[in-house]
């Protein structure tokens, strides 16, 4: 998947995406990602967990909060010592049918990130939707 192409017309796809899979959609597993890429392995582990669950047929939703939002910054590469980044993993989410991807609005704003400038098409959600997502998923894992 070409990320740059995916970003074109992002606003349109955002609207379509939201109408098909609202943030409140009930799912089996909600993975909350709250740690930045490269600083620790938590983001990678959370994404791996989401992919494995999806590979076993679970319905998986993702929620980026706080430092986890940096995962969505375009143009990431590997670390100075060649450590793999997480951007290639994000590109695989679509292949695993993980399409309910949420980002908390306040976190984005605090970090100076714009939803139109992220590597994925995401639903920007408020605190009430975060609470609803936690309530409506059978299992919630916080990374």
């Amino acid at each position: 998947m070409n990320v740059n192409k995916a970003n074109e017309g992002m606003n349109d796809s955002n609207i379509a995406h939201t109408s098909i899979t609202p943030p409140s959609a009930t799912g089996e597993l909600l993975v909350i990602l709250g740690h930045a890429p490269h600083g620790s392995s938590l983001l990678r582990e959370g994404l791996d967990m989401a992919l494995v669950a999806a590979a076993f047929g679970r319905r998986v939703s993702l929620l980026f909060m706080g430092q986890g939002c940096w995962a969505l910054q375009p143009g990431q590469g590997e670390g100075a010592l060649g450590q793999k980044g997480t951007q290639s993993t994000l590109e695989m989410l679509e292949m695993y049918d993980i399409d309910n991807i949420m980002v908390e609005a306040e976190s984005l704003e605090r970090l100076g990130l714009e939803s139109s400038d992220l590597v994925l098409s995401v639903s920007v959600v408020d605190a009430a939707s975060v609470q609803q997502a936690i309530a409506s998923h059978t299992l919630v894992m916080n990374f």
Binding site: G66, E104, S107, R110
Partner: peptide
């Protein structure tokens, strides 16, 4: 750490 902000955002009224 600012992570408390995420905890508060995620908390419903009876949490």
């Amino acid at each position: 750490s600012q992570v408390y902000r995420q905890a508060l955002a995620a908390m419903a009224d009876d949490d």
